[in-house]
Amino acid sequence: MSGIGPMYPNEKPENPYVLVSYAGHLLGNYSSRLCAGCGYGIIGHIFTRLFEDEKLDPKLYPLVLGIGCYSQMLLTVHYATQKVLSLHGRAPALATGMKMANPQMKPIIFTGDGDCLGIGGNHFIHTCRRNLDCIILIFNNSIYAMTGGQGAPTTLFGAKSTTTPYKMFENRSDGVKLALAAGATYVARTTVAHPRTFMKYFRKALKHKGTSVIELITPCVTYFGRKNLNNLGAEYLGLKGEKMDTAGKMIDWIKRNSIRVNQAKFMNEEELFNKYIIGEFRYAPDQPEYSDEYAKIQKIARGGI
């Protein structure tokens, strides 16, 4: 992180939330160092805005970031947040330790699709099973972007990546279904093309007591968009797609490729293939939360009932 990013003359009136971001606060002017059109810039921006508008107390909402392109969000998130860069895939386990040692905290975990469903799958499953009070944000750009565009557990069938040069032939894993099966009590998926729904879900997750899993479909233009055609989700139509080489085309493709939960009920298997189903999948606010249950155990251990 030696260079903080391209610096251009500061123009007035500046976007108010730039100065709230960490690097903006440090340098007075900042633009994210991510590729043009990357979804993480959008998410970092929205997170900073939410952190500022909700007036969250930085001491109670530590950030645990996994390893990936989104690790650069250390610079774009709110300047007052306390951030830990955990190991690849181990963010949910680190957050469990933090939460249990200081039960007032509610860790916010940034993980990627490879980070959470690939190497960190076991920790993700058990954090959801325990219904620990934390927010797990899974950024699904269906590629290992930081290391150069390798295939990920969530790469779409038939997509090209550096480790699947011919065609991705494996079945893809679904973060939401995994979270539902593991027992997370608030599961939702949205895309970066719907920024306001992500803000709505995030505000709901902040108030929800228990594990809330929000999966976000983000475009990765440089490694996924440029190498794949935009008929990925619509094979059954037999269209001849074109390369999605700009973020606009990818956001357009994401919008076309994401189906609302209720709408998906009326679509058959062939139409739903390679599609993202967005919406809220489960909201069970009154499930027992892990740290409360452990407080009861502590009471029993001290002789109470």
Partner: peptide, 17 residues
């Protein structure tokens, strides 16, 4: 925890806090 990796990471998280 679910495995040794998670237990050492939880220990690190707790020690951080």
């Amino acid at each position: 925890m679910e495995d040794e990796l998670a237990s050492i990471n939880a220990v690190i998280g707790a020690s951080l806090v």
